[in-house]
Amino acid sequence: MKIITLVKQVPDTWSERRLDPETGRVDRAVSEAVIDEISERAIEAALALKDADKSTTVTLLTMGPAGALDALRKGLSMGADDAVHIRDDALQGADVTITSRVIAAALLRRPWDLVIAGNESTDGRGGVLPAMLAERLGVASATGLDSFELTGGAAGGDLVGRRSADGVDEVLRLGFPSVVSITERMPDARFPNFRGILGAKKKPVEVLTAADLGLTDLHPAVSVVSVAERPPRQAGTRIIDDGSAAAALADFFASRRLI
């Protein structure tokens, strides 16, 4: 089984996140860039399959600036075999249409059976990339899986996944090649051990530009027309409960016609 895991580097959610007021893009300068937690879980899902079947290979794929190499290194130190880094200044600020075209083109360059991605990144939150890739590649997809297992191998086998979303529990079955996305209900990522950290530097990272992928006419389908920062909320009344807080709260509700 050849698995490709999609990895994204995002601004740390524990710090303040901002949009660039000119472009409406995430301002990546203000917060520390970290590997998205959901990407780590996607890597873990792939490595769990590798643990069960040593012949499985796990390739990481990211599109991002030079610093995104850190995210790949983290994944390689966890145990992935190699990585592809699509790195091109022309792709800065790419929308999901361009991103899906570029990643689909990169996926077409090598054989694989399964693509595993996070269900949505913590910065974009779009959640559409996996299905867009599947559509461009003409393969089946199953998104938002809370767990999955393989029945049989890449040839003739199936992937059976469970998802629980929008009030419905489902079991989905699909063959290979295919694209799946996983939720944060999948197991936590393993910690890289020392051997993995030391070995990560020796693992191959292929660097590709848009031109390497034969893509030159990259025009975003969507453009941002305005960005407005909402004034931050102000703290209102704060009282310390001395036994009368419930009455004061009820008065507050009444004053706002909430009761």
Binding site: T97, M132, E135, T143, G144, V222
Partner: peptide, 18 residues
């Protein structure tokens, strides 16, 4: 979750902006 899957595929198939 289901709607986003539909939107993703429709947008690609219609070459629309998403």
């Amino acid at each position: 979750v289901r709607g986003r899957d539909v939107a993703a595929r429709v947008a690609v198939r219609l070459d629309a902006g998403l």
